[in-house]
């Protein structure tokens, strides 16, 4: 009976577009779904630092280096807010990291693709962050308070990143013939993996239905993907580059582009762990974590000693 009351309160909050806060009662499935989504999002930010970090030491101008360094730092900061939001659901950061390091937790598959040239840094900012924003803008109004608030801040920074990415692409696309070639090559390699970021087609998306009901998600995968394509094609044209899809065509009736489906077999394969960099990403993360163990231990022991001295004084 009592649970029923709690559930009614929860449902009525959702219906009134009110936020659910950490101390509010929530159904187990809601908690589980959020925890999975937020921790996965946090992991994506942290793993996402790796492909971009790959070019910090080789950024081709001092300005470009400062911008990229700041950007990668922002991603780490996003990871931090998101871990904190996830912790409010009752799981510690250590537990989440452990799940990441032992491959039990997922992160966005896009980061299992390599950054092979400087143009990739442009493409990641422009396309990958652009696609992430599409997902994230709606999350600013998501039903769980800490997540929604973290997303407000994250979205501001991400749209800045997207502009920075596009700026790099502009320099490359309007630069020397070699630069333009790098820009086109980056677009060719990142286009379909970016479209995969919105998740499987609606008919095959197992988690979407509840997520829509709980206002954890507010638009479907296919809707977001369509919107992304519509928006991005124009930007590609401005750069004088070509979308690597022969089926791309304006459809007047739907006021949007028709386009090829990404290769969903590849998508599943990368999720399974067979992407070009799954192994490297996980190894890099584990190495950093393991190499840092004695540092964390020293800090803990030092902290304890300080407390003891303080207590004795």
């Amino acid at each position: 009976m009592e649970n029923k009351n709690f559930e009614d309160i929860f449902e009525s909050k959702l219906a009134k577009n009110e936020m659910i806060e950490p101390k509010d009662w929530m159904p187990d499935n809601y908690r589980k779904h959020l925890l999975r989504q937020i921790s996965q999002h946090a992991h994506s930010e942290i793993i996402g630092m790796l492909p971009e970090g790959n070019w910090i030491s080789r950024a081709p101008s001092l300005r470009a280096k400062l911008v990229l360094l700041a950007k990668v730092q922002d991603e780490g900061g996003h990871g931090l807010y998101l871990y904190t939001a996830a912790e409010s659901l009752g799981t510690s950061r250590d537990e989440m990291l452990n799940a990441l390091h032992t491959s039990k937790a997922k992160y966005s598959s896009i980061f299992n693709y390599p950054t092979l040239s400087w143009a990739d840094i442009g493409a990641v900012g422009w396309l990958v962050d652009g696609a992430a924003i599409m997902n994230q803008v709606m999350l600013q109004r998501t039903s769980y308070g800490p997540y929604a608030r973290a997303m407000v801040r994250i979205c501001k920074e991400e749209s800045f990143h997207q502009r920075q990415g596009y700026e790099i692409m502009t320099h490359m696309a309007f630069g020397t013939p070699e630069q333009k070639e790098m820009a086109q090559d980056a677009l060719n390699r990142w286009w379909f993996p970016t479209l995969m970021m919105f998740g499987p087609p609606d008919i095959e998306s197992p988690n979407s239905e509840n997520a829509m009901k709980w206002r954890i998600k507010r638009e479907t995968n296919d809707q977001l993907r369509q919107r992304f394509v519509n928006q991005t094609v124009e930007q590609v044209e401005y750069l004088g580059l070509t979308v690597p899809d022969k089926n791309l065509k304006w459809n007047e009736a739907k006021k949007g582009y028709d386009f090829s489906e990404p290769d969903w077999a590849e998508f599943k394969n990368v999720i399974k762990g067979n992407g070009p960099c799954n192994k490297e990403r996980l190894e890099a993360r584990n190495k950093a974590h393991n190499d840092g163990e004695w540092v964390r231990e020293a800090a803990t022991v030092y902290g304890k000693k300080q407390m003891e001295e303080y207590a004795a004084a």
Binding site: L50, G53, I56, V72, G76, L80, A284, A288, G292, R296
Partner: peptide, 22 residues
């Protein structure tokens, strides 16, 4: 210093060191 970015011993320290590099 920026070689440490994304390889720090824990997240807060990673951010601090990147900030110093910046």
């Amino acid at each position: 210093l920026c070689e440490w970015t994304s390889k720090g011993p824990f997240l807060e320290e990673d951010l601090a060191l990147t900030n110093i590099a910046l």
